[in-house]
Design a binder for these strands. Sequence first.
DNA 1: CTGAAAGCGCTTACAG
DNA 2: CTGAAAGCGCTTACAG
Lengths: 331, 331
Amino acid sequence: MRRPTLEAVATRAGVSKSTVSRVVNGEATVGPDIRALVMRAVNELDYMPNPAARSLVTQRTDSIAVIVSDPPAGLVSDDPMFSTVVRAASREFEAAGKQVALMLAGTADSRLRVRQFVAAGHVDGVMLMSMHGADPLPAALAATGVPIVSHGRPAVSVDVPWVDNDNIGGAALAVRHLLDRGRRRIAMISGPLDMSAAQDRLGAYRATLRETGRRSIVAIGDFTRISGAEAMFQLLDDDPALDAVFAANDLMAIGALRALRRAGRRVPDDVAVVGYDDIEAALYTDPPLTTVRSPMGDQAVASARLLLGLLENRPMSSVVLPTELIVRDSS
Amino acid sequence: MRRPTLEAVATRAGVSKSTVSRVVNGEATVGPDIRALVMRAVNELDYMPNPAARSLVTQRTDSIAVIVSDPPAGLVSDDPMFSTVVRAASREFEAAGKQVALMLAGTADSRLRVRQFVAAGHVDGVMLMSMHGADPLPAALAATGVPIVSHGRPAVSVDVPWVDNDNIGGAALAVRHLLDRGRRRIAMISGPLDMSAAQDRLGAYRATLRETGRRSIVAIGDFTRISGAEAMFQLLDDDPALDAVFAANDLMAIGALRALRRAGRRVPDDVAVVGYDDIEAALYTDPPLTTVRSPMGDQAVASARLLLGLLENRPMSSVVLPTELIVRDSS
DNA sequence: CTGAAAGCGCTTACAG
DNA sequence: CTGAAAGCGCTTACAG
């Protein structure tokens, strides 16, 4: 019932454990006839190396942690971005023979657990997702000495390389598009200001309006649909004459569309709406949503490659990926 | 630079390794003064047990695999269900001290990798998600002897306990609701027929219509938005006079809403629409979507508990959770 | 090219 | 209640 060991294979093949180990690990220094003998024994016994025993001596685990800073309410993991990123990164890591352990770290408790897990040497590297400014995790993890990358630039300066899309350029694209369409009173629904993506998108919105001498009108959401709807109601209160709104992500834009419908405003006739991310749902809103396409999958792949490079001691630096405006009927 | 070992702690505390091990593992048989001594050394050195070494002797890994049968196109992981389930299950497992390794197994290659991973003893148990009928993975994994549960009843009979919602009851609720509203020609957009949820929902639709002497009108999708839109166009072709459609999930219902809009049909005036799942997006469609609420989070929690029970050798059996109709403006 | 031996860092009977 | 010793299943210098 117990699984076969190296020793069993060695006995069966009539060779030493060393030789079996070499064959199993693909070392070239084994004679072809002996190798064949060993392979046969391996197949007959359906042998697979015990990963714990291997890790114990190699000091590697061949697995990496993807850590998602997800509050208990599930703000992050309800975002379609979450699946896209986890999926793309998993593929990349698995192609490199690394197993992915997904960990959620939204509470103080789970942060502690995650830190312990990493510090105990469970994984060879860490990919961080959606880190808020106040989050102590990046620093705590960096202190363990394990290689780390962040998917998205961390809000506070901490010495981990990151990959992000061009939030500033993307937001500027959105606002200029609305100006080009002749919109005069362009409001923004911002994301939470302790996240760098939200900061950058808001900053670019403000800068672009300032260039043309226009005033900013801002409400803050938390990247969820419901917060987008609430922010939209507030903006309509603040400035009933607004004729456009730029939401810092598509989920909030979807919430805004609903709020505008409830308030009896037509989109785009009365109010133009632009989102950010280009999630699939943006194609299915009524009307379909104009949005900034952020290359989420590419960003995840780049993050994964960054970490894989770090694991091989290659010199690696942060990456910014370009964005693109997708014009649909909402603007 | 190397992390401290049991031995280092023992030396520092002036006791044996056995004693340190006992303290670290919370055994009660250690004198209070000695325990204090050890604890101090542990803290001073920031000691954490090496998990590989521990696993090697205990034959446990304290981690479990969540395996998602996700085709390369990402059908499953783009579904909001995916995040909800992964998140809820992760919480449950982590509360029990189990680490979660998320694995995607959509291709033959990745299925092989997953099987090897499990067979090699990387994990103590497996939770399967969204298994299609032809998928050889459940049987292959069952053969490894590792405890398995399936989130969702497997389409082919394989001896693993599962947790599912009451697909038959839920679908019947939806169809009866449409009948009660006076709808006469009720079409259905089914999910892929190699999945049990799709089979059951379609079966219940047919049975309920048959009871009242009505004909079925069915098109098949794959649970994605786009397939829902395509199926809706086909249904309109097949029966231009249809006055209601029941989609086997909300994503396809959202696609159907879009197709109906394109075809110039008003919802619910011309065609009533009902979905299944009650994902958050169902609240944000125009009009908001009537749907069957399936307790996805509860189902994930129940699946996790089922597996945890199995790991403790408790006798466990499959579970069916009740559903509920949520009536909104689309019907 | 192959093997005997040491050692990775733990846990756990077995003594006392 | 505490310790010495064996052993979990591998890899890897070191010899030959």
